[in-house]
Amino acid sequence: MRSPKVQLKRVTKKYANGDGVENINLEIYEGEILTLLGPSGCGKTTLLRILGGFNAIDDGEVLINGNNVVQLAPEKRPTAMVFQSYNLWPHMTVFENLAFGMKLRKMPRTQIKEAIKSMLDLLKMNGTEKKYPNQLSGGQQQRIAIARSLLLKPSVLLLDEPFSALDAKIRMQMREELKKIQAQLNITVMFVTHDQEEAMALSHRIVVMDKGKIAQVGTPTEIYDQPVSKYVASFIGEMNFIKEADGELAVRPENVRICSGNSGNYKGTITSIMILGHFASVHINYEGQDVKAFVARSASFELCETMPVSFELIKYQRYKKGA
């Protein structure tokens, strides 16, 4: 897995309004799902489009399989992209949509047919060849778009928030399927999303982006457990920030343990308790600050609102002021 398939070196692209990306250095390894995560306007889609050849860059190099592709038009690049929506051509059937790229590559007809058949089998979409895109559901359309990209055997598959227009249940299903297919075909994937949950669930590595720069690169576990800055900490998962004299403590609600009696280092008052299924979310007023703690449901029965409690922090990060 460990040879870099894609390398971005000092990539810079600035728009007139100040958005864009700046000095991006990044490697994508063969067979991994790398997710670009960040709020809108952070440059994640710009970066993906740079790889696909849809955005020219002001400075830097983009290497795919060791070759500089900066000068290549999208149709010459070994990349395949799936957009958020409107991927398919409505005047073509599913088969024609899938065959389009292969026909341009002058593949023999029988081979095209076979490839499409096995791809549709893989995606459990067989029988849709003669349908038009408007006869498919949103999820099915995205599946066909992914199939069309995979059929061209790209060096890297670029996915631009492909599931964000789908409803929650289908989205989950598509994530799992994508992960399964990715593992099965061992393809390299670059995935863009603003949904941190999706990033955590899918990725081998996550790149958290902030205003055109990389804030942190790491596995989901690293990003979750050791966020390097307050920005990353606040963007991923739930996080309490407790102000101190010279900085802040960042602690996850599951790492706040409510202690019996007065044995905890921090003392406060419970302001509210919410049962959220198998656990409860308890809000504690600690010196005027709101601290959230996740408590097992059985333990939450001993607590009630306005009750004074003490708690301790099992694991936390400390950020200096201004970091």
Binding site: G52, G53, F54, A73, P74, E75, T79, A80, M81, F83, Q84, S85, Y86, N87, L88, W89, P90, F100, G101, L104, R105, A145, R148, S149, L152
Partner: peptide, 11 residues
């Protein structure tokens, strides 16, 4: 996107 997708697959 529909035009870009066509570029993307090699047109």
């Amino acid at each position: 996107q529909q035009e870009e997708a066509a570029r993307d697959v090699g047109a």
